[in-house]
Lab assay of single mutants.
Amino acid sequence: TETAWISLVTALHLVLGLSAVLGLLLLRWQF
Rank of each mutant, 00 (worst) to 15 (best):
L18F: 03
L26D: 14
R28I: 05
T3G: 07
L12T: 10
L12S: 09
L26R: 07
L14R: 06
H13I: 15
L27D: 12
A20K: 11
R28L: 08
E2K: 10
L16N: 05
A11W: 10
L26Y: 15
I6C: 01
A11Y: 10
A4Y: 12
G23D: 05
E2P: 13
V15W: 02
A11G: 07
S7W: 01
L14G: 12
L8I: 11
L25C: 14
L12F: 05
L12D: 13
I6A: 04
L22W: 04
L26W: 02
H13P: 15
L8P: 10
T10K: 05
V21N: 07
V9M: 05
R28Y: 06
W29C: 01
E2D: 05
T10S: 02
S7Y: 06
L26H: 03
L8G: 11
E2G: 07
T10F: 09
S7D: 12
L22E: 07
T3D: 08
I6S: 02
V15Q: 07
L16S: 00
E2L: 06
T10Y: 12
W29S: 00
S7A: 02
L27E: 03
L12K: 03
L14V: 07
I6F: 03
G23I: 08
L25Q: 03
H13N: 05
I6H: 06
V9C: 14
G17F: 06
G17N: 01
L18K: 14
W29L: 00
T10P: 04
L22D: 11
H13G: 08
H13C: 03
L25T: 15
V9Q: 10
L26A: 13
L14K: 03
L24Q: 02
T10M: 06
L25M: 03
V21W: 05
A11F: 13
G17R: 02
L18D: 05
R28S: 07
A4K: 15
L8M: 02
T3V: 07
E2N: 12
A4L: 14
R28A: 15
L26V: 10
H13K: 07
L12Q: 04
L25P: 10
A20M: 12
L12A: 14
A4E: 03
L25I: 03
W29E: 01
G23C: 04
V9K: 07
S7N: 14
L14N: 04
L26I: 14
V21I: 09
L27Q: 08
L25D: 07
E2F: 10
A20I: 12
S19W: 12
A11E: 06
V21S: 09
L14Y: 05
L8H: 12
S7K: 11
Q30K: 02
L18W: 06
W5T: 10
V15D: 02
A4P: 07
R28H: 08
W29G: 02
R28P: 12
E2C: 14
Q30V: 13
W29D: 06
L27F: 04
L16P: 05
L18P: 10
S19Q: 08
L26N: 08
L25S: 09
V21M: 06
L8F: 06
L18C: 09
L22G: 13
R28K: 01
A11R: 14
T10V: 13
L16A: 09
W5V: 14
E2S: 15
L18Y: 03
Q30S: 10
L26S: 12
I6Y: 09
V9D: 06
I6L: 10
L14E: 06
Q30A: 11
S19L: 10
T3H: 06
E2V: 06
L22Q: 00
L24D: 09
S7M: 02
A20Q: 05
A11L: 08
L26Q: 08
V9F: 13
W5C: 01
V15G: 01
H13F: 14
L8Q: 05
R28N: 08
A20C: 13
V15T: 02
G17L: 04
A20L: 07
S7F: 01
L12R: 05
V21D: 04
L12Y: 14
G17W: 02
L27T: 13
T10L: 12
L14I: 01
G17E: 09
L22F: 07
L24G: 12
W29K: 00
Q30W: 15
L8V: 05
W5D: 15
L8R: 13
H13W: 12
G17Q: 15
L22A: 12
L18Q: 10
A11Q: 02
L8E: 06
L24C: 09
V21F: 04
L25R: 03
L24Y: 14
S19Y: 10
L14H: 02
L26E: 07
V15Y: 02
A20D: 01
F31Y: 00
V15P: 14
L22T: 14
L14A: 09
L26C: 14
V15L: 01
L22C: 09
T1N: 00
S19G: 05
W29A: 00
S19T: 04
V9E: 02
I6N: 03
R28G: 15
L16I: 02
S19K: 01
G23M: 15
L18A: 12
L25G: 14
L26G: 15
V15R: 03
L26P: 10
A11C: 12
R28E: 02
W29V: 00
S7H: 11
A20W: 14
L14C: 15
W5R: 09
L16F: 11
A11S: 07
L25F: 12
E2A: 04
V9W: 04
L16T: 01
V21E: 10
L14M: 01
L22Y: 06
V9H: 11
V15E: 01
S19C: 02
L8N: 13
H13D: 03
V21T: 15
Q30F: 04
L22I: 09
S7T: 08
T10Q: 15
T3E: 13
L22P: 01
L27N: 09
W5H: 15
T3S: 04
H13M: 15
S7G: 12
L8C: 05
L25Y: 11
L18I: 01
T3I: 03
T10R: 09
E2Y: 04
L8S: 06
Q30E: 09
L22H: 10
V15N: 05
T3W: 15
L18T: 11
A20F: 07
E2R: 11
G17H: 14
I6D: 07
E2W: 02
L27R: 11
G23S: 04
A20V: 01
T10D: 08
A20R: 13
Q30L: 06
L8W: 08
W29R: 00
